[in-house]
Design a protein around this nucleic acid. Structure first.
Lengths: 363, 363
DNA sequence: CTTAGCACTCGAGGAAACTGAGTGCTAATA
DNA sequence: TATTAGCACTCAGTTTCCTCGAGTGCTAAG
């Protein structure tokens, strides 16, 4: 059933106000809003109906109303008005991003910290590898002292290596042969096929250096597996404690613990299939501890087959409009930065035209 | 001034009891302890003196006493009785450590988590490189497509590399020459000396590939710098919230924030010069937020020139004896594990002989 | 030197009363 | 018919007041 315009307006106002104050909202407060042309009695009737429709709740008889999960969902999906980032906000985000970021794992930590600062909420950031990993090229270098260096070139120019102590004496020629064989048979294929006949074929062709093959392939498998693993960081946990809903220490502890545990380990996966910004409202969360905790997250592109994700964790009563806007802008800026790593070209702050923040509110 | 035996006994009892209950301790409670042979009145007098000596404090007139910072210091340095780990405790620590640990940065995270679990307090873990880093050996590999791979061998068999796009065409012979020059002049010296005449000499001898030298040395410097950087993780922050002293959310927030900020970034450095276990009691902390928060930490050996550190953060009223014992055992186990990485040989659980936990209580 | 006794202090905890924001319902109004 | 004013009622939160008892310091007796 579609809500009347007036009901929508009331619902939106209630959620807006509740987001600002964290206190149950009464009919009078709504009636006194600048562009509300009805008396508190009318609002009262509307609120009563919204309550019976399941969009609002009443903590107890003589208190105002607070949004229910369905109310938030409706708000996020249809009612919420786009938040316009101020020039100051875009500038501070840009400034934050401009700092040099080096290694990927450090980067994830840093991004999480920045997002947390920008939203004043705990933030998650993750980078996970897309697509099936394979080796582009093998190199074997004689390193003296009876050891060799194995160098793997991966797609996207990444290079990984390992020092291998030689179990047997191997000549330079043997190595050349072995690497030729490896490059001929084992490149550009997924690691699942490193088995059976292919393996035997390689062993046969490898000649004197055949005993190295298992060591090499073990390391290769390990490396490729590590490539697919997701790197994830959480920052700014303490910001939760500043919010009125977490004045209750026990509750705060439960939430913080489950943040630190595995609770969010599946978020990057969830994000894979979604596009744009995704909002998970309170009870839609999986974990029980997170009943009145929401998550807003979005993807960005790191390049090199890496998929980035940033998100924030907050009370169900969080300022979705603002958070979504900042998150989207952040993601956009990061994507652009990674697109041209040498001269980071940051997006222009939104000028006169409305700032579109794409959004899907999946369940 | 040396305290009388009886005063020591009273002080120890007060701290012990306060650690257990987190409530001010009265004279009666002390007098009723099994091996206390004096009446509450006598204890009262002793406590009054201990108070005027600065070892105890009184929250208000009609309450019991709590230890002051000086009281804790005294307790940690002289009074505390060694805690004997139970077989169960050693077993669970061993079990935890036995899990495979891969990369160093992951390892640091994992260790922090384990320590936090073992002590039920937030834990810090860090790994930092010891001694001045240098390059053992340079290798340059032609990688096709107008690029080369630079391979640096560091002490302790670590290998790092980078793909370099060639600005100019370079032949295999040129590369051989360049790497010979690099290996002759730039190995086994600290990076501070990569300057002036040495640099010029290399450039002159490098021939056709001279234009590569700056790129190579930039990367080398960066790598060596990264080698000295400390890797640090904190886990189990939420455990703080379970403790009575952090029922006050604002306080908890202040402490957690400063844990997440830079507050502990200097701990690894502090640990460098200390040996054994170090206890920093509340007000000895640098940061103001950490006034009634203590830190216990100890070192362990990762090998490969890496120095490990583990520590826990807790209220000044923490069970120093227990924490210190567990931490020491943990450190010992880790050291042994890294000493023989393939077949981790864990220390035997302490048998009949007293379990010595070396300890220095520096200021 | 130790201990029993005692008057005193003062925070914690609980009951009772008060306050006021907010409600639902009814009747008047446009 | 839709809106609004008015009113009695509800109930969480706050304040006030009181009691209770753990703990103290001091004095005098053992």
């Amino acid at each position: 059933m579609e809500l009347s315009e007036r009901k929508k307006k009331v619902l939106r106002s209630v959620v807006d106000l509740y987001i600002r104050t964290a206190e149950p909202v009464g009919s009078k407060a709504i009636a006194e809003l600048p562009d509300m042309k009805y008396s508190s009695a009318t609002i009262r009737n509307e609120m009563a109906e919204l309550t019976s429709l399941g969009y609002l709740e009443q903590p107890h008889t003589s208190a105002g109303r607070i949004p229910s999960a369905a109310g938030y969902r409706m708000y996020v999906d249809e009612l919420m008005q786009d938040y316009r980032l101020s020039i100051d906000e875009t500038r501070s985000i840009n400034l934050a991003i401009e700092e040099k970021m080096q290694r990927v794992d450090r980067l994830v930590e840093k991004v999480a910290k920045l997002v947390s600062q920008a939203t004043d909420l705990p933030a998650i950031s993750a980078a996970s590898r897309q697509g099936c990993p394979c080796v582009k090229r093998f190199d074997l270098i004689l390193a003296g002292q009876g050891s060799i260096i194995l160098v793997l070139m991966l797609p996207n120019d990444q290079v990984v290596n390992k020092l291998i102590k030689l179990p047997v004496e191997v000549s330079d020629t043997d190595l050349k042969l072995l690497s030729a064989v490896l490059n001929a048979s084992m490149t550009d294929i997924p690691m699942e096929s490193f088995t059976g006949e292919l393996l035997e074929k390689v062993m046969r062709s490898a000649g004197a250096a055949a005993s190295l093959v298992p060591v090499i392939l073990d390391f290769t498998q390990e490396t490729l597996k590590a490539q697919t693993s997701t790197n994830m960081a959480i920052a700014g946990r303490a910001r939760l404690l500043g919010l009125p809903e977490y004045r209750d220490v026990d509750k705060a502890q439960r939430v913080l613990s489950s943040i630190d545990e595995e609770a969010f380990s599946n978020l990057p996966a969830v994000m894979q299939d979604a596009n744009g910004t995704k909002v998970i409202v309170g009870p839609e969360n999986i974990a029980d501890e997170l009943k009145d905790t929401s998550v807003v997250m979005t993807k960005f592109d790191i390049g090199d087959g890496l998929q980035g994700m940033i998100g924030v964790v907050g009370p169900t009563r969080m300022d979705y409009a603002k958070v979504t806007a900042r998150l989207s802008y952040f993601a956009e800026s990061l994507s652009k930065m990674f697109a041209k790593p040498e001269t980071p070209q940051l997006p222009q702050p939104p000028g006169e035209e409305p700032n579109e923040s794409p959004m899907t509110g999946g369940t």
